[in-house]
């Protein structure tokens, strides 16, 4: 599952605790909705099905490539392009080269993790339809939101809000799509 854009609109319900959100998410999933998303000020184990992140693999690969590049740069510079006899140590000085290689590995892996996150999370994105909701600011403070895509097969303009209301939310909001 990817980051939702709600291009078809969405139904949102506001809750005042992580617990209530978790219960609501489970209930909606059980009643057959699949395009769900939550918004919360702290990470919540809502049990929604999600794909496993492939970020670790990407980070491993980029890190390995970064390390390889760091080693090759040193080999090219000191052993191939401009060998200098310093302290009698060999031009191709494996123990010495390992240190910048380590740093290069970590640097590339860290950059991959950082930028990788912003890419998969599709940030920066100063504007998002949910920000149009009045009072959504509290989603980063103390309110918990459950959102259901209007494009979900099970969504319907009158049924879905009713189902959401049954979960005892503070309120239910309809977000228009099309923007």
């Amino acid at each position: 599952m990817r980051e939702r854009t709600w291009s078809a609109g969405a139904y949102l319900a506001e809750f005042d605790s992580a617990d209530a959100l978790t219960r609501a998410a489970h209930a909606m999933e059980e009643s057959g909705y699949s395009l769900l998303e939550t918004y919360s000020p702290v990470p919540v184990a809502h049990g929604l099905r999600r794909s496993t992140s492939r970020l670790p693999i990407a980070v491993f690969i980029v890190g390995a490539l970064g390390g390889l590049a760091s080693y090759l740069i040193q080999w090219y510079a000191n052993a191939y392009s401009y060998p200098l006899d310093i302290g009698g140590r060999p031009s191709h000085a494996v123990p010495a080269f390992l240190i910048p290689t380590f740093e290069g590995t970590v640097l590339s892996a860290a950059l991959a993790a950082f930028f990788g996150f912003f890419i998969v999370a599709r940030l920066p994105q100063p504007y998002h339809p949910v920000f149009d909701i009045d009072g959504f600011e509290r989603a980063t403070v103390d309110r918990y939101w459950l959102a259901i895509d209007a494009a979900d097969d099970r969504s319907s303009p009158d049924l879905t809000p009713r189902e959401l209301h049954r979960l005892d939310p503070l309120r239910v909001v309809r977000l228009e799509g099309g923007s």
């Binding site: 302290g87 009698g88 140590r89 123990p95 010495a96 390992l98 240190i99």
Partner: peptide, 12 residues
């Protein structure tokens, strides 16, 4: 192990 090696290897 590497700490010991690099210090001794470099100073020779």
């Amino acid at each position: 192990g590497f700490s010991q090696l690099i210090v001794i290897w470099s100073a020779e």
